[in-house]
């Protein structure tokens, strides 16, 4: 976990009014008026200007989530990744979660597209913020209101997986084969309870264990890396682009809060059928 993220965890857990009133949240509020946003913004971005993101980054979620412990989210760049201009970082924030910084995703021009899909937990009705930082250091924000609650604490109990399965990974490809030089979508699936730190509130026999870092390379070059935490659902899933050559190795390295390190590799060859179905 990078120092920024660690600072956030420590700071925000103290600062935010976690037990705040829950009354009158049926109407969709104004993202500019959220009382939860200013302290998060201050801690993460200080006085930096944050521009309207609609031409740079968008965030997609259902407004009313079906399962607060598994809310699919997609952050999609509206610009191409070129060496001259690209999105180098995306901050994904769930304002009302105990640890609001769900993930900080780093991309490179080798990513093909700055896009990531994952699944989030929601402790309470909340704005989700996706903030893209371009290589020139500018920040662009997209926001979305989501009605879902109770998902931070809900999981963990239904997913007691045998210890030998924790850290098992799969790549699942959107298409049956890839074509050299054409961006391809791949889902990295990580078998992990991603236990919320909240799960220990009334049970001190367990130390929460969750994935904190994910790094994916293709042919030795980083295409996506992320600092994440327990706002990500159990069995963390990340779907993103890479640009294949004729042949190359896709590698994922995952670390969790118990300093466990898991590695998964797969050789991708143009035209050869890929797992995913």
């Amino acid at each position: 976990m990078n120092p920024l993220c660690k600072g956030l965890l420590a700071g925000l857990l103290l600062v935010l009014p976690l037990g705040a009133a829950v009354a009158n949240e049926k109407a969709e509020p104004d993202p500019a008026k959220s009382q939860y946003w200013p302290p998060i913004r201050q801690m993460m971005f200080g006085e930096r200007e944050i521009l309207d993101g609609k031409d740079v980054v968008r965030v997609y979620l259902s407004t009313r989530a079906d399962d607060a412990s598994t809310v699919p989210v997609a952050v999609k760049a509206q610009i191409d990744q070129t060496p001259g201009q690209y999105i180098k970082q995306v901050y994904l924030i769930v304002e009302r979660n105990p640890s609001p910084a769900a993930g900080i995703f780093q991309f490179t021009p080798d990513s093909g597209r700055a896009q990531v899909e994952t699944r989030l937990r929601f402790e309470d009705f909340s704005f989700v913020r996706a903030i893209a930082e371009t290589n020139d250091g500018k920040l662009y924000m997209a926001s979305r209101w989501v009605k879902a609650a109770g998902g931070c604490s809900a999981p963990g109990d239904k997913n007691r997986m045998p210890a030998n399965l924790v850290g098992t990974m799969k790549f699942r490809f959107a298409d049956e084969t890839v074509e050299a030089h054409k961006p391809a979508l791949v889902q990295l699936m990580i078998r992990h309870p991603n236990e919320s730190a909240l799960a220990s509130d009334f049970d001190d026999t367990r130390t929460p264990q969750f994935v904190r870092q994910v790094k994916v390379t293709y042919a030795g070059k980083t295409i996506m890396s992320a600092d994440v935490d327990f706002s990500i659902s159990d069995n963390p899933s990340f779907r993103f682009y890479f640009v294949p050559e004729k042949e190359g190795e896709l590698q994922a390295i995952v670390e969790d809060t118990h300093d466990k390190r898991y590695v998964h590799r797969e050789i991708i060859v143009e035209g050869v059928p890929l797992p995913g179905g």
Binding site: G19, V22, A23, A68, E123, D124, A149, G150, G151, C152, S153, A154, G156, D157, L198, A199, D201, F202, D203
Partner: peptide, 15 residues
């Protein structure tokens, strides 16, 4: 254990 994990969100939602 399950009740302990869900106590707060369940009470918030009930209210």
């Amino acid at each position: 254990r399950s009740m302990g994990q869900r106590a707060r969100p369940y009470l918030n939602a009930l209210k």
